[in-house]
Computed example of a mutant assay.
Amino acid sequence: MKTIFSVIIFSVLLSCSMFQEENEYQLIYEFENLDETSQKEKVIEVLSKRLSNYGLNFKFDSSKSKDILLTIKADTIYKDRIDNLITNRGKLEFWECYKSKDVLESLLRYDNSLNQGALQELVAFPNVPYDPTIFYCSSENLGVVLENLNKEAFKSFFDNEFKYLKFLKGQPNDIEVVGFYAVKSNEEDKALVTGSDITKAFQTYNYIDKPTISIEMSEEGGKKWEHMTNEAYINNTQIAITVNDIVYSAPGVSAGPITGGKSEISGNYTLEEAQDLAAVLSAGDIIPKLKLVKFLERKNE
């Protein structure tokens, strides 16, 4: 009932104030990588699917060689929210984590023997058993930590013990601290389960009434998900769920493999953020990076 009620309220707000047809707004976007402009029509198709969830009166114009022009007719709009819907790449991936205890032991051996303890001066380690996070660092030290993780000596050391080890960043918390996760990649550096396996995504609530995104997968995606959750269950490991290469959650699998191709993405979402991410994931394909270069507002007097 709560989900239905929130959707009704959300729709009323959009139709009554956010998107009344009175003024005209234009948002002009460019591709960050100009070599990807050939994908323009496909990108517009995906963006149109995203915006169609909101009752918007909108139109895309791709007549200029490098730009995408979005025109919206409404009483007023939330520019930042629209911009987030457009620029979100929609890259959803699921990665099996290594056991944090095993990786941490090797990390400390490397840092003490080959790195003069430099990494330990920059990070903090979790005190909770079975925490999938390997370590934490401040956003201020993030660049230096990444430099340490990208050293050839570091990569060579870990190649001997953890084949295709990959570190992923989490979301910064309220005090700008970032967690790092160690996941199992492969030769192609491709996640087993991705957004291409998703057939449906919608905003809902978890058991503590926090906004989340429920997802449903294709038959093939469901089989891969069952295999992945079975491996995590057998190995007593977690699965890192990433959006645009950022870990949003890393749940464990405590009751055996998950069948039926259903899952949930949780995180510190507001209601609007969960609704918007569901719209992005429902639209399917990953899009290239876009940037807003101009915003125009034309009010009807």
Rank of each mutant, 00 (worst) to 15 (best):
M1Y: 12
F5L: 10
I8D: 12
E22F: 08
N23E: 07
D35Q: 13
S38G: 04
Q39N: 10
I44H: 14
E45T: 14
L51R: 12
K59F: 07
S65F: 10
K66H: 12
I68Y: 15
K79S: 12
R81I: 01
N88P: 01
F94L: 14
E96S: 03
E105Q: 06
L108T: 11
Y110R: 11
Q116D: 07
A118N: 12
A124G: 09
P126G: 04
P126I: 08
T133C: 04
Y136Q: 05
S139F: 03
L142V: 05
E161K: 13
K163M: 12
E176F: 08
V177Q: 09
V177E: 09
V178R: 01
A182M: 02
V183L: 11
E188L: 05
T194H: 12
I198G: 00
A201R: 11
T212G: 02
T212D: 05
T212H: 02
E216Q: 11
G221K: 10
H227M: 12
A232C: 01
Y233N: 06
Y233C: 02
N236Q: 14
N236W: 09
I239E: 09
S249W: 08
S249Q: 10
V253T: 11
T259N: 14
E272C: 05
A283W: 07
G284F: 14
L292I: 02
F295N: 04
N300S: 06
